[in-house]
Design a protein around this nucleic acid. Sequence first.
DNA 1: TTCGTAATTGCAGACGATTGCACTTAATAG
DNA 2: CTATTAAGTGCAATCGTCTGCAATTACGAA
Lengths: 340, 340
Amino acid sequence: MKKGHQVTMKEIAKKLGVSVSTISRALKDSPELHPETKRKIVEAAKEMNYHPNLLAQSLRISRSKTLGVIVPEITSHFFASCISGIQDIANTRGYNVMICQSNESLEQEKANIQTLVSSQVDGLLISLSRETNQYDHLYDLYEREINFVLFDRVQEDIPVSKVTFNDMGGAYQVVKHLLENGSRRIVYVSGPEDLYISKKRKEGYLQALEEFGVNRDNSLIKITDLTEAGNIKVAQEILNMRPRPDAVFCMIDPVAVDVMTEWKSQGVKIPEDIALAGFTNNPTSAVVEPPLTTVAQPGYEMGKLAVGHLLDQLDGIASDDPISIVLETTLVPRKSSQHF
Amino acid sequence: MKKGHQVTMKEIAKKLGVSVSTISRALKDSPELHPETKRKIVEAAKEMNYHPNLLAQSLRISRSKTLGVIVPEITSHFFASCISGIQDIANTRGYNVMICQSNESLEQEKANIQTLVSSQVDGLLISLSRETNQYDHLYDLYEREINFVLFDRVQEDIPVSKVTFNDMGGAYQVVKHLLENGSRRIVYVSGPEDLYISKKRKEGYLQALEEFGVNRDNSLIKITDLTEAGNIKVAQEILNMRPRPDAVFCMIDPVAVDVMTEWKSQGVKIPEDIALAGFTNNPTSAVVEPPLTTVAQPGYEMGKLAVGHLLDQLDGIASDDPISIVLETTLVPRKSSQHF
DNA sequence: TTCGTAATTGCAGACGATTGCACTTAATAG
DNA sequence: CTATTAAGTGCAATCGTCTGCAATTACGAA
């Protein structure tokens, strides 16, 4: 392996015949130094290509200027957008970011937290895995007084700051849209029931139905495990329901896309035979045929807000009292829902 | 801000009335320690919820067990897949990963390198930005003997290891496929000409043409700046060419999708009027209508290989002599190219 | 000339973990 | 009962940077 040796203050000091402290002060532009000395040191540092060792600095001040991020999966466009927002803000505020993915596994999530904490990150931004249904590891963080903020996939009871979407409102909007387009027998395809978003979007769905005087019918709520096979199975079940539903609202776009693909292969016409809508506004949803009606969630914005608040807490700008930031979503009506 | 205090060896030492060195040895399971002492220390450490400070360890051994990754943008599915592969391997081999995005900017790329190096990463994995057309920052890394591996978007002349796709072969495959389906007047929509992949894929395009005895016609090579507007402009220009081309091969899928969307809005039938193919196999490409013929690049695999080789170098398993790993691509024929 | 004071710079200890070496015991051999 | 040796611990230095305090020097004032 190569040496990859970094120039240190000690070496500059030796070369110039002064002490390390003097080097340190010169590079911090301390006023108590002779200008000439300072000039020489700065010059030598540049010439020798000196770069401070952030590890040493962090150790000394007990702050690493690094944040940890845990998302279920990076390859999801939504989470990638969040990360992008987090990075941008963190960098402009002088922080680095270490990213981990839990791969939707509770064990991985715990392991990630452990690693990041050991790496002395100053704070954490966490979006929970699908599997996460007990929260000891989060309470543990809380008790150890480690700063963290939950976003998107949150646990409601923990007294830390959270950034979420108005999931209920978004679901309400899209179901209302389906109702306004004349649908009355509307299926809700939900993910696993203990998921935060499964619950919230169901609430919005039910609220819209109630507002339009449509009776609740639990047989219209289908659960998928979110795998492709699971989604296809649900798609088939829906086609076999009698009377056949006239619209389907899927909890997330990928489910809707799988359903659409399956239906198309069976010759079902969308939206003529049955209307379809999703949630998230993945890039894919705009280009499928027909384009998918959905609800846009600005992931980049969410990332920015979450990290912004965390940094405010770390920098003492915001108080430590937990707050809840709720982002509004936007209905994106497209062809898949426009039947009359 | 909360304290977020971490338990240190010193505190365990004080509590147990032994020296810090003893704590250290106990936790490393050193054999020269009295078993009873060891037991007590391990127990106390667990009870006090001790976790080693990786910063301090890194400083001491001058290895951070952290890798830096720089990609043009995280929100690209391809790069997200690479990152995913990098993470998985890095973690199983005991390394952490810091990810940065250059946002296709040379300046950002330089800044990212600077930050990561200052953070004492043990090595870097870099995919160059589109803007990067001079390479001082890379040669600088090379001279400072900092380990790094280039992947996907590489610079060929630098004597470091590189992981690439057989871009030329992939392009050859897809153009051959178009030729076999009867097309003869085939447009190549290229990105900026100094991009590595622009060049390589052009080579494959030309080779296939030559093999089928089709004369080269430079007017059939169109350049886009890869923005949506640029792509649409090219799409329109192609429709106005006389005689009209019978197939179009776009350098990357997003370009092909923009072209498809534009054409569909103009009533052009794909593949009947004109065949279309892309490159990358983005998730989107499978669900557009018609599904897009493309070339699959296994990003996850690329990430795994790149990081694997870098770690092999760092761990002294592989020699420092640069190698070039070339991954094969796979033609994914879909409906967009099947006209007869 | 002598003293006070300001301007410069160096020393040493700290951050947390690790490790070669020296030291203290206690046990064993002679 | 003393000398030898091994077992078990502690000391101190190290990684690179920072900073309170002490030390040195020089300068002007009395």
